[in-house]
Deep mutational scan, measured.
Amino acid sequence: KKVLATKVLGTVKWFNVRNGYGFINRNDTKEDVFVHQTAIKKNNPRKYLRSVGDGETVEFDVVEGEKGAEAANVTGPDGVPVEGSR
C-alpha cells in the first residue's frame, strides 16, 4: 500500500471493538481516517483484543487503501502502546 503520510497524530473518533474498526480524526488536516484493528501495532499489553479508545490520542501512518486513506502502524504518541477501548 502506498504511504501518504507518516507519524501523524490524531484523535480516535470512535472504535467498535466487536467489529474491529473505527475512525481516527487527523490533527493536521482534520480528515477522518479509517482504522482496522489489524493496523494497531502496539496494543495495550493487558488487553486481549486489539483496540483504540474513543477520544484517545494516537500516532499512525496514513496509507492508500481500497476505499481511500486508512491508518497503519497505529501506536500511542511516540510509539508507546495504545490505551485501548475502556
Rank of each mutant, 00 (worst) to 15 (best):
T11P: 00
K13A: 06
K41M: 12
W14Q: 07
V35Y: 06
P45M: 10
N43S: 14
I40G: 02
E70H: 06
R26V: 03
T29K: 04
D32I: 00
G84P: 11
E31S: 05
K1L: 05
K42M: 14
G10W: 00
S51E: 09
R26E: 03
V52H: 07
G20Y: 03
A71R: 00
G20F: 06
F60Q: 03
V63C: 05
P81A: 11
V3D: 04
K7A: 08
T38N: 10
D61G: 04
D54N: 13
L9M: 12
T6F: 08
A69V: 14
T38E: 07
G22A: 02
K13F: 01
P77G: 09
V8P: 03
F60W: 02
V82R: 10
G22I: 01
V82P: 12
W14M: 06
E59A: 09
G65A: 05
K67F: 08
P77S: 09
R26C: 03
R86F: 08
T75A: 07
S51A: 13
A69D: 07
T57P: 08
D54G: 15
F34T: 05
R86A: 13
Y21M: 06
V63P: 02
T75M: 07
A72R: 10
K41P: 06
G20V: 06
V74G: 02
L49W: 13
K41C: 09
V52K: 05
A39P: 00
D61W: 00
P77F: 14
I24Y: 00
K42T: 15
N27S: 09
V82Y: 10
D78K: 13
Q37M: 11
F23W: 10
N43G: 14
I40V: 07
T6G: 06
I40S: 01
D61E: 05
I24N: 01
P45E: 11
V52C: 07
T57S: 09
L49H: 10
E59M: 15
G10M: 00
V12F: 09
L9C: 08
N19A: 15
D54L: 12
G22L: 00
N25V: 15
V62Y: 00
V33W: 00
T38L: 06
G79Q: 11
E59R: 13
S85I: 10
L49R: 15
K42R: 14
I40A: 02
I40C: 05
F34M: 04
D54T: 15
G65K: 03
F60P: 00
S85T: 13
K47N: 13
E66G: 07
T6K: 14
H36Y: 05
F23Q: 05
V62S: 02
E70W: 05
Y48C: 14
K13I: 07
E70M: 11
A5E: 10
G76D: 09
E64R: 08
K2W: 00
D78I: 13
N16I: 05
D28V: 00
V80D: 10
N43I: 11
V74K: 04
Y21L: 05
N27R: 06
D32Y: 00
E70D: 02
K30D: 08
A69Y: 13
T75I: 09
G76A: 15
N73F: 02
R86P: 13
Y48I: 11
V62R: 01
K47A: 13
V17D: 10
K41G: 09
N25D: 01
R26S: 02
K30R: 10
P77T: 12
S85V: 14
I40Q: 03
N73K: 02
A71G: 02
D32V: 01
V62A: 01
V3Q: 06
H36M: 03
N73D: 07
V80P: 11
T38I: 04
N16H: 05
I24V: 07
A5G: 05
P77H: 10
E31W: 00
R46V: 10
G20N: 07
I24C: 00
K13R: 08
V17L: 09
A39I: 01
W14S: 07
K1R: 09
I24K: 02
L49K: 15
V80I: 11
G68P: 05
N27V: 06
L9E: 10
Q37I: 15
G65H: 08
F60S: 06
V33G: 02
V62E: 03
V74L: 06
D78C: 14
G55D: 04
Q37L: 14
E70N: 05
G68M: 03
A69P: 15
D61T: 01
K1D: 07
I40K: 02
V17P: 12
H36L: 02
K30M: 08
G55K: 06
A71C: 08
R26N: 02
K7M: 05
P81L: 11
N44G: 15
D28F: 01
